[in-house]
Simulated scan of single mutants.
Amino acid sequence: MSLGDDREGQTRTRLPETGGDVYGGARRGGRSSSRSMITVVGVVVLLVAAIAFANRGGSGSGSAAGDEDKPKASSTAATGTRPVKGKSAGIPAGYAHDEQGAQSAAANYAIALGSADMFDKVKRDDILRTIITPSRVSEFETTLDQAYTPAFYKNVGLNEDGSTPTGYTFVSRTSPVGTKVVAASTTSSTVEVWCSGLLGLAGEKSTSPVTNSWFTITMQLEWTGGDWKIVTHSQKDGPTPVPGDERASSADEMAKAVQEFGGFTYAR
């Protein structure tokens, strides 16, 4: 078990868990031809790089100066250890008692905290009892009950009781992009999770269309009851990439995508 080192640049392997329009048609710019050219050039560059790399193999030479700054192979390679042993309230549970287990827990907990189930009081409390350390569950429940108010529901396009208006599809989904351990010991771990999120109401007359955001969640975890649990968590904006020029999907396309594409279990 290795919990003493700070790890940066960790990449997660995603494992499948199961089997007027506001979105409108207008593109941000008519640059489809330039995008096609960029794609072709990019493919050519990748092929050339791959050929060069293959031809370089077997030289037996030592690493060149500056190689020590490059990412290690282990930072992107998946381990052969099964990441979780089971589920609780639909959330993966039973993480390894090491840095990789803490990262897997943080990524999956970020998904749960950003899910549409958090807008339902009963489901939210089930989630909290699953991912929060027992001594803090009551505090989290009280804090979130005060946050999920009728005014908040209305602000995201829902009815005041948190239900979805007839004819619309509510979307709330968080997708971890990567994780980083910033502090660790045998009993605790602080993990940052870089995420992309979707939130809004898909429907032709929606005044709260589905939008994308980027943010980083910092979780302090503790090892208790044979698993990693959240002690505290906070969130900040970014890092945010430059938007592309893809056409925004229609409301029907967005609703269909959310209904047909399932989520993932994230694991190191």
Rank of each mutant, 00 (worst) to 15 (best):
P134Q: 00
G20T: 09
G203I: 02
T130D: 03
A77I: 15
R31F: 15
D67A: 15
D67T: 12
G4E: 13
S75Q: 13
Y148N: 06
G58I: 05
A52C: 11
E17H: 08
W194M: 15
I111K: 08
K229V: 03
K256L: 09
V45Y: 06
Y95E: 05
Y153I: 04
V137W: 00
D117Y: 04
A26D: 11
G101R: 00
A77L: 15
F119W: 02
Y95T: 01
D145L: 06
A65E: 10
G262T: 12
A267D: 05
D237T: 14
E17W: 08
V122S: 11
V181T: 14
N108T: 04
F140T: 01
S250T: 14
G4R: 10
V122A: 13
T142W: 00
V48A: 14
T179R: 04
T133C: 03
G4D: 14
F215T: 09
I51C: 14
E222H: 04
G101P: 02
S32P: 00
T143G: 07
V231E: 06
L221I: 00
Q10P: 05
A151N: 10
G114H: 02
G94H: 04
A106P: 05
G101V: 00
E68K: 09
M219I: 01
S189V: 04
M1L: 13
E17S: 13
S188P: 04
L3V: 15
K236H: 10
D98G: 10
L3P: 02
T143E: 13
T240M: 08
M219Q: 08
V231G: 03
G57N: 12
F53W: 14
Q100F: 07
E260Q: 15
D120S: 07
Q146L: 09
R124P: 00
S74K: 13
G9N: 13
R12W: 07
G29Q: 10
G29E: 07
G20K: 10
G9C: 11
T11D: 11
A50R: 06
S61W: 04
T143D: 14
P176L: 06
F261W: 08
G162V: 03
P83G: 06
P239T: 12
G167T: 07
G162T: 05
G238A: 12
S250V: 01
Y266F: 15
V40N: 11
Q259F: 10
G167C: 08
G114I: 05
